[in-house]
Amino acid sequence: MIVVFYILLLFMLIAAIIAVETKNLLSAVICVGAIGFGGSLIFLFLRAPDIAITQIVVEVLGLIILIRATIARDLTSISGDREFFGTVVSIVIIFLIFMAGFKVLDSLHDFGTPVYAKTEKAASQTYIEKGLEDTGATNIVSSIILDYRAYDTLGEATVLFTAVIGATVLLRKKSRKSPEVLE
């Protein structure tokens, strides 16, 4: 069973590399879809059905948005990177972050043993033990996001609202003519 998990992870990694390196933008967008659906299967494997449902639906809408942006536009394939010096500096910095990250990976717990299992009176332990009693919801994730940590959801609603207002302002029709044209 764990083999399937590794195959899916490698599938996501390869799809990401293809999405980054391909010349055609439409192929890159489709590879992003492959990453998202692979991720949804992995969430199912990791016993997170809530996330799997949300991810698979969000992926469909995200693909529609991305294809809307790329389809029927000229110059969709721009090859090449930025200037040479900037690219070299960026790659060096990325390599440094990479090395630092691999140092951090050693200090993590092993895969398959969550942190809260070894800690006394961890928050997650309380949620699992008392969730049904306190909130009455059998889906513990739902009881966390709407009861224990409802402020989180309120902030999420605010962020989503702000993002939608920003997109609406950017896409409105009135501002399409610049002031010189109006005069």
């Binding site: 997170a48 809530d50 969000v58 948005i65 994730v141």
Partner: peptide, 24 residues
């Protein structure tokens, strides 16, 4: 399994869709 990261990620996924729309 640990329910707390799942609850945090659930909000993060929907926010990522909103921010994707803004970026696009």
């Amino acid at each position: 399994v640990d329910p707390l990261p799942q609850a945090l990620v659930l909000t993060s996924i929907v926010i990522s869709l909103g921010s994707l729309a803004l970026l696009i």
